[in-house]
């Protein structure tokens, strides 16, 4: 089993940014959007995320798996949410008078359950979709667009103690080795007649069946860890100060990028408290689509 990281240099504007500015701006935008439910603002948020996605020049082929995953998740979650309560985060649509399009009562174990579909729920669901897509697209491009060898120095540069940051680098270093070891163990056990494909027995038995595959890999890795620890101690790991040869430097374009993040953040604060545009509402034209007069 050969693992491959998704990252490769694509010569894009995003590539040329300091990874720290990428993280900072992404989180600024995320936090800016948390309190806001205004549907038009959410569409704007989604467009912002998509702009970043297009800047990354990722192809459909590379990312189709994650798109399917996100869309599947969103459909399930929004559907579930609509059926169960239809309410969202801060209970937005409770304030609105429901305009019922469909309703039915079920009797379950003596209790009556009345799911319905209202114009407000549909409107909320669509807003929610833009919001969830926006958030997912904002972050999911990270593995494709940030060089895995830069994580340690990036987080160290953002003030995380270097031991934690180095753990991250070391984890990336171990992944291909452990993936290979896992493949070897799978082969070893198959040589002893173990059939990976076969699921049999009850749930507990099925779960126990993976022990021969994971226990050897884990224990071997732990034993080898002693040598790695020694090797690191022998090369002075753990002094007060550590240099990272990977060089990170903020350049004009980074200040520009962070500037966008700050602007969005401040803009969101202004929308929220200055203009009071944070709340969810259903536009009149939307009611019109269903022939309903609010």
């Amino acid at each position: 089993m050969l693992v491959t990281w998704k990252y490769r240099p694509r010569g894009t504007f995003l590539d040329s940014l300091d990874p720290r500015s990428r993280w900072i701006t992404s989180f600024l935008i995320l936090f800016a959007m948390v309190p806001i439910w205004h549907p038009y603002v959410m569409v704007g948020y989604f467009c912002l995320s998509m702009t970043q996605f297009f800047l990354s020049r990722l192809t459909w082929q590379e990312t189709k798996r994650v798109w399917f995953f996100i869309i599947f998740l969103i459909v399930i979650v929004i559907g579930l949410n609509a059926i169960i309560t239809g309410r969202g985060g801060p209970g937005e649509i409770q304030r609105l008078e429901p305009h019922v399009l469909w309703e039915r009562s079920f009797n379950i174990l003596g209790a009556t359950w009345t799911p319905n579909i209202t114009v407000e729920k549909i409107g909320f669901g669509i807003t929610q979709m833009f919001r969830m897509m926006g958030t997912a697209v904002l972050f999911f491009i990270i593995p494709w667009t940030i060089d895995p060898s830069k994580y340690g120095v990036t987080f160290s540069g953002m003030g995380i103690p270097y031991r934690f940051a180095f753990s991250m680098d070391l984890a990336f270093r171990f992944v291909p080795t452990l993936a290979r070891d896992f493949a070897t163990t799978v082969d070893s056990q198959r040589a002893r007649g173990y059939e990976v494909e076969r699921l049999e027995g009850g749930l507990i038995t099925q779960i126990r069946r993976v022990a021969p595959l994971i226990v050897p890999v884990v224990m071997n890795a732990i034993v080898n860890g002693e040598d790695i620890t020694n090797a690191m101690d022998l090369r002075c790991f753990g002094q007060d100060k550590r240099t990272w040869i990977g060089k990170l430097q903020y350049r004009t374009r980074d200040y520009f990028w962070i500037g966008i993040g700050v602007a969005v953040f401040l803009g969101a604060l202004y929308l929220n408290w200055g203009l009071n545009l944070e709340n969810f509402f259903v536009p009149t034209w939307f009611y019109g689509l269903f022939g309903v007069v609010p």
């Binding site: 060898s149 680098d169 270093r173 080898n224 040598d227 790695i228 090797a231 690191m232 790991f237 040869i245």
Partner: peptide
């Protein structure tokens, strides 16, 4: 010290980082 199995003493994903590791730990300038 060079340990027995190089696989169990290499701590970096790239050669240049591996060779630099000890010097980085000593906090020498880049």
């Amino acid at each position: 010290t060079l340990l027995q199995d190089p696989e169990r003493q290499i701590v970096a994903s790239y050669v240049v980082n591996e060779v630099a590791f000890g010097l980085e730990n000593l906090g020498l300038p880049r």
